[in-house]
Amino acid sequence: MRKKQDLPQKICLHCGLPFRWRKKWDKVWDEVKYCSERCRNERKRMGKSAA
């Protein structure tokens, strides 16, 4: 078993906060860009209003 601090980490593109690997992202970790659904949805919303 790995310790939490040993898991891979990324920075969220929306909020800029670091987040760690989760088991549900095991197969798609390279594609994960946001720490949560909320950040992902906010990023989409901001993109539409800017256009």
Results as ranks from 00 to 15, higher is better:
Met1Cys: 10
Arg2His: 13
Arg2Asn: 07
Lys3Asn: 14
Lys3Ala: 15
Lys4Pro: 05
Lys4Val: 12
Lys4His: 04
Lys4Asp: 01
Gln5Leu: 11
Gln5Trp: 12
Gln5Ser: 12
Gln5Lys: 10
Asp6Tyr: 02
Leu7Arg: 14
Leu7Cys: 06
Pro8Asp: 03
Gln9Asp: 01
Gln9Cys: 13
Gln9Val: 15
Gln9Gly: 06
Gln9Asn: 06
Lys10Leu: 12
Lys10Gln: 09
Ile11Asp: 05
Ile11Cys: 05
Cys12Ala: 03
Cys12Thr: 11
Cys12Val: 02
Leu13Ser: 06
His14Glu: 00
His14Ile: 00
Cys15Ile: 05
Cys15Met: 06
Cys15Leu: 13
Gly16Glu: 05
Gly16His: 03
Gly16Asn: 10
Leu17Trp: 00
Leu17Val: 13
Leu17His: 02
Pro18Cys: 13
Pro18Glu: 03
Phe19Arg: 07
Phe19Tyr: 13
Phe19Ile: 02
Arg20Leu: 09
Arg20Gly: 11
Arg20Ile: 03
Trp21Phe: 15
Trp21Gly: 01
Arg22Glu: 08
Arg22Val: 08
Lys23Gln: 13
Lys23Trp: 06
Lys24Asn: 06
Trp25Tyr: 14
Trp25Pro: 00
Asp26Ser: 14
Asp26Trp: 10
Lys27Trp: 03
Lys27Cys: 08
Val28Gln: 09
Val28Glu: 03
Trp29Glu: 04
Trp29Thr: 10
Trp29Pro: 02
Asp30Ser: 15
Asp30Tyr: 07
Asp30Gln: 12
Glu31Ala: 14
Glu31Trp: 02
Glu31Pro: 06
Glu31Val: 07
Val32Leu: 04
Lys33Trp: 02
Lys33Phe: 10
Lys33Cys: 06
Tyr34Asp: 00
Tyr34Val: 00
Cys35Arg: 02
Cys35Thr: 11
Cys35Val: 08
Ser36Asp: 01
Ser36Trp: 01
Ser36Thr: 11
Glu37Arg: 10
Glu37Lys: 13
Glu37Ala: 10
Glu37Trp: 04
Arg38Pro: 00
Cys39Phe: 00
Cys39Gly: 05
Cys39Ala: 10
Arg40Phe: 04
Asn41Ala: 15
Asn41Phe: 04
Glu42Thr: 02
Lys44Ala: 12
Lys44Arg: 15
Arg45Trp: 09
Arg45Phe: 15
Arg45Leu: 15
Met46Val: 10
Met46Pro: 00
Gly47Glu: 12
Gly47Asp: 07
Lys48Phe: 08
Lys48Trp: 03
Lys48Pro: 03
Ser49Asn: 04
Ala50Gly: 02
Ala51Trp: 09
Ala51Gly: 15
